[in-house]
Nucleic acid binder design. Structure first.
Lengths: 252, 252
DNA sequence: GCATGTTTTGCCTGATCGTGCAAGAAACAG
DNA sequence: CTGTTTCTTGCACGATCAGGCAAAACATGC
């Protein structure tokens, strides 16, 4: 097995799982742990991952948010949501993809052989898409906000205005039938609103903890949601409310 | 068996498997490993594959390119260059940082306690900076080009025009006293020129292999370079030429 | 046919790189 | 605190590499 091959497999697993274990890689590759450690050290030096005791995790922006803050359960759940969300896509579409860990999972779940045009203001989403040769990637620039992992501001709004999407994967901070989709940050909400305006349809993938909650800044009404991707365990009553507003519900 | 025949078979297997092993090819073709190595070397020179220890892999999609296209030595060398380049900075400055592996190394080398405003069109540079709380990061959006790892195009130019920098870390494809700084790609060169225009000073960090070489598209004249960061082993004659054009030379 | 020059190939040599092993240091868990 | 796991460092061995050299294959011109 080529050294290069191992490096690629490590990158792949990092993109998929967000982490790798030194011992596990060693037995999978049939080499000593020392060799794996050397591989990890090199990749870390090249900035492609962050070394931690026992293995490595994806380098920012995934890692910090994906692994340390969230429970493992949430990661798996989001991956499931992402797989279901990707089912809404068809080749040749153009998309807006918003920031947030769920949307990053969606970006990672996009199949490598699907041709798409994707505009995003999230560095995490963009990073997940860089090695998809069939994806035309438009980065929506602007002032980067570390807490959000996305770009916002006047420059971002100007860039959004130049793009039209068939579908918008909206990252949601709060989702309530009465309040609609809401965000915690004013500038963030502004960008989301611009994306809504330039999209033919809106899709939202959320974990249960976001359902029936609201944040200060309004992005869109509940009736604007076309597709809602939720966990199987989502409360039926809440879902029925959204369906009555015209949303299609998809289970992960 | 014709040389050309072998080359075609190698290309075929690369397209199918993504990798080839020197020893395996030798026994399959019934030639010595040396011959296979020569084949691989030629194909690599023509950019049709990427040579690695033990064989070769399909030439690089971005992720692989960033890291491994370069030898271990190059990574270390670039890290050294980066440390020296960071020495040019002082707190409170605003910077343009261009794409390229050397500039990504510079971004990683920026101290965590330094306050800076940084605009970049490179996803790699941006990713390296996301967890630096004191860095105000401006992402220059646009159409993302996988081969370059940067955003280019009209949107990028518009974003560059809105920013002014004290210093511009220019990624150089070719650097020659007569031809100046040159790039391989037309759109890339255009963005670089816009950054040059909006910067008070230009800094370039290069490994020896870029010195005294040129690419098709001109970015700036040699006299525009204020700081040139080079390896200790850089040829003195070449450096003297740049110094006579007004560049300060810094050794890694 | 024959001589000459070029290209290709295999082998050799010294150098480099990747790997596993061992010892000591460091990080973690109880 | 103690014991365990993981990590780094140094070392040795084998695999792989680039460059030089000479023989063989091939092309070219007379």
């Amino acid at each position: 097995m080529l050294t290069e091959e191992r490096h690629q497999l490590i990158r792949d697993q990092l993109a998929a799982d967000g982490k790798v274990l030194a011992g596990e890689l060693a037995s999978r590759f049939g080499v000593s742990e020392d060799t794996v450690r050397r591989d990890l050290r090199e990749l870390a030096k090249a900035g492609q991952l962050r070394r931690v005791y026992g293995g490595a995790v994806a380098s920012a922006p995934f890692a910090a948010a994906t692994l340390s803050q969230r429970s493992r359960h949430a990661v798996e759940e989001k991956t499931r949501l992402a797989r279901a969300a990707v089912g809404l896509l068809s080749a040749g579409q153009s998309l807006f993809i918003d920031g947030g860990t769920t949307n990053e999972a969606i970006a990672r779940a996009i199949p490598r052989d699907m041709e798409l045009t994707i505009a995003t203001n999230s560095l995490g989403v963009a990073s997940a898409l860089v090695d998809r040769p069939l994806v035309e990637l438009i980065m929506l620039g602007g002032r980067y906000v570390p807490n959000l992992g996305t770009c916002v501001g006047a420059d971002t709004l100007a860039a959004v205005a130049q793009f039209g999407a068939d579908l918008f994967f909206l990252g949601s901070c709060g989702l309530d039938v009465a309040r609609g989709v809401t965000a915690f940050d004013s500038a963030e909400a502004e960008v989301k609103r611009a994306m809504v305006k330039n999209s033919a349809g809106i899709a939202i993938a959320v974990t249960n903890d976001k359902l029936a909650t609201a944040a200060p800044y309004r992005v869109a009404g509940a009736d604007a949601i076309r597709h809602l991707v939720v966990e199987r365990t989502a409360p039926a009553a809440t879902l029925a409310d959204f369906q009555s507003q015209g949303a299609q519900v998809h289970f992960a």
